[in-house]
Design a protein around this nucleic acid. Structure first.
Lengths: 136, 136
DNA sequence: CCACCTTGTAACAAAAACAGTTACATTTTA
DNA sequence: TAAAATGTAACTGTTTTTGTTACAAGGTGG
């Protein structure tokens, strides 16, 4: 089971999308998510690096940087997981075994295809789809 | 990043598929995977419950139970992850916030669709595809 | 039939991953 | 210039994952 960073990131962006004209502080967002403000700032930092939100040291609050219908869930996924692979492959299989020798490259190939399928679906859904569901 | 149980499970089944007429012990398999025999027996137990392999207390070795082209990677995934959701959703968001109130059900919906896309691709690939790649 | 080997499983241990927290330098602004 | 917020490092507690020890119970071959 994948950790909850994507879940929290979408929560943060949903708030910013719902209040596009306000600057929401990490303290305020943390109360909605029910976590610590530092956790929010950590994930906000990843979203900022990807250009999805604007924040600045010293200036209170975050603001969404792009229209919600232009933000794909894949953008958010890539922001919070960067280049992590979806599935781990076990390390150091036995190179003297015909299976062990090639299992890693084989699984890498296979798992990349699975990951691509997942990412395609993440690309099909936008932040606006989320907010529409939230407020309908 | 998801743990390596699927990776190890596919390794085990690849060995059994490669040697369908031999009974491979957990000790032998563990040496190919490079882990402890108990780890192999734990995962083998999950594969047995799903009817993918045959093992019996007292009798040495495991044998594959179905032709490799009939075993979808989704079967293996479901064997080792049973009913785990793909993505975690953060707990106890603030019910007094319009986003917090509905974010969980919304994300549940969304993440189920993503999971379905991933499972569809896992269903498209068989154990035989893996062994063909291994031995080509 | 009995010594030997294996599986299945529980219990424990070590290591890694996660989430939460404290602390504080830096930056802005009222 | 005092107050307040961000960014980030460092640390802690918890949970998950993986590895290990131990052993009962089931089969096998001599």
């Amino acid at each position: 089971m994948i950790n909850s960073r994507l879940s929290v990131a979408i929560h943060i962006l949903s708030l910013l999308a719902a209040y596009p004209h306000e600057r929401l502080t990490s303290e305020f967002i943390a109360q909605s998510v029910n976590t610590n403000p530092v956790v929010v700032r950590r994930i906000s930092g990843l979203l900022r690096k990807k250009g999805l939100i604007h924040t600045r040291p010293g200036t209170a609050g975050a603001v969404i940087a792009r229209p919600p219908d232009s933000i794909r869930l894949l953008d958010i996924y890539e922001a919070v997981f960067s280049d992590n692979a979806l599935f781990s492959v076990h390390e150091n299989p036995n190179p003297n075994c015909p299976v062990g020798k090639r299992i890693q490259e084989t699984l890498d190939d296979t798992f990349v295809r699975v990951e691509e399928a997942m990412k395609t679906e993440l690309a099909n859904q936008s932040l606006q789809d989320i907010t529409e569901h939230l407020f309908s």
